[in-house]
Design a protein around this nucleic acid. Structure first.
Length: 195
DNA sequence: TGGAAGATGGTCT
DNA sequence: GACCATCTTCCAG
């Protein structure tokens, strides 16, 4: 898709908290046989390796599921939560299991296809949550292990956000002191953030 | 090998 | 705000 300018591999090789902020406003794109869907990333969360109790890689837990987190920055980490698939960007050095969770996007291409996949919904409900956006964009476990710097699932340049808000992460109440870390970032006043 | 837990979302009260 | 759908992963026994 030539109208999209892919982010270089080097973009992913910055500190995880910074990457989480830099990803805001970038364009997440998925190309499938049904068509292309794309959205501006408006909300992210950072999960930082061995010392973050909320991370799957806490205490260097290395399993079949978390294996990808130990690889180079820029890989795709998808996993299933209840009935939904969630998508993350691997960051950090090799052997440093850190990721950025993409929690919400603002649709910018393929809205009709998103509506079809999600069922008739208000525009604001299409992609305003980590499980919603993967369903709307057709992101599944098939994408596990791919790279964000190449088709069919990639991230391209977008628009710089005017203002960024910071706060504690969502849905990790059982993670002890980690639940209060201010590692959630979103574009201030954007109506597509998850809550 | 069975059971419990989980970075969620939709529905109903 | 509470409940549950539904599935993978992991660990105890």
């Amino acid at each position: 898709m030539s109208q999209y300018q892919l982010l270089e591999t080097a973009f992913y090789q910055q500190p995880t908290l910074q990457l989480a902020k830099e990803l805001l406003g970038c364009t997440l794109v998925k190309i499938s046989t049904e068509g292309t869907t794309a959205g501006y990333i408006v909300e992210t969360e950072a999960y930082r390796g061995p010392h973050d109790r909320a991370a799957h890689s806490y205490n260097n837990r290395r399993t079949k599921r978390t294996e990808i987190m130990f690889k180079e920055a820029g890989h795709v980490y998808t996993y299933v939560m209840h009935t939904h698939c969630l998508v993350n960007v691997v960051s950090g050095e090799v052997e440093q299991p850190e990721v950025v969770l993409i929690r919400a996007v603002e649709p910018c291409e393929g809205v009709e296809l998103m509506v079809e996949r999600r069922g008739a919904m208000a525009l604001k409900n299409l992609t305003s949550g980590p499980g919603k956006l993967t369903k709307a964009m057709g992101i599944t476990m098939e994408d596990y292990g791919r790279r964000f710097d190449e088709s069919p699932l990639f991230i391209a340049k977008g628009v710089a956000p005017e203002e960024i808000s910071v706060g504690p992460r969502i849905g990790i109440a059982n993670s002890g002191e980690a639940k209060d870390y201010p590692w959630r970032f979103w574009i201030t006043d954007n109506s597509f953030v998850s809550r």
